[in-house]
């Protein structure tokens, strides 16, 4: 459980001559989660995208799964990213979208896996509807289904509870808990301190491009793990 999944040292990235990230440093071990908080426009989403290799970075060191990641931003199949958008085709059904992702990630036994994940996010009845007919909350659940399907070790969740109803929050919180219990890691951004306390092992605030106000959390999650 002591394996380091992702480690950043002095990570920086400029946009339009202005530093968005300047000297972000942290390390995340397997089975742990880091909650990143911060004001709008503080660079939370940018941080996740840099960690995921969607964006490049300009300074510092980024290690993923023990190997240095290239500064240009190279994707890695072991990373699961949940962004503001669902990353799925609105004109395909959820099942078709998941099939596509399953094929891209070369998942064996795709049909069975899809069946499992749509059940877990409680969308089994809707899986053969095109995504464009989904409500905002259902789309978020669908995005969660995609995340579960590709079976990544490191989750990068950008406000994963946005638009979800209480039921959805509970389901997805459980999913995150299971993921961490199985030895996965997660970096999560959120605005709500309650979420951070409930689900994070560590929390930090992203402020003028760096992580500050670190706090170790012994929230409900850790308690449940022990109990």
């Amino acid at each position: 459980m002591d394996r380091v999944l992702v480690e950043a040292r002095g990570l920086s990235r400029n946009l339009a001559g202005r530093p968005v990230l300047s000297s972000v440093s942290f390390s995340l071990r397997a089975g742990r989660s880091l909650v990143v908080m911060g004001a709008n426009g503080a660079g939370k989403s940018t941080l996740l995208q840099v960690l995921g290799g969607i964006l490049g970075y300009q300074g510092g060191v980024l290690m993923r799964f023990g190997t240095p990641a290239c500064a240009e931003g190279i994707p890695d199949g072991r990373i699961g990213y949940l962004g503001h958008k669902s990353l799925m085709y609105p004109n395909l059904t959820l099942a078709e979208n998941l099939q596509l992702y399953g094929r891209l990630w070369r998942i064996v036994n795709v049909a069975q896996r899809i069946d499992t994940v749509v059940r877990r996010v409680d969308l089994a009845w809707w899986q053969h509807e095109p995504l464009k007919r989904y409500s905002q909350g259902m789309r978020q659940r669908a995005a969660w289904a995609r995340l579960l399907l590709i079976d990544a070790q490191l989750w990068l969740l950008d406000e994963p509870w946005a638009g979800l109803d209480p039921d959805g929050r509970q389901i997805t919180a459980g999913l995150l808990r299971d993921h961490l219990a199985r030895g996965g890691g997660a970096v999560v951004t959120t605005h709500r301190w309650e979420d951070a306390q409930r689900l994070g092992h560590m929390a930090a605030v992203l402020e003028s491009g760096r992580l500050a106000h670190w706090r170790e959390l012994a929230g409900t999650l850790a308690a449940e793990e022990q109990g």
Binding site: G52, P75, G77, I79, H84, K85, L87, Y101, L104
Partner: peptide, 14 residues
């Protein structure tokens, strides 16, 4: 519309 390109690019194979 839904940033699918990000998902495709993140898949193994680059």
């Amino acid at each position: 519309a839904e940033d699918v390109m990000v998902g495709m690019a993140m898949a193994p194979g680059g």
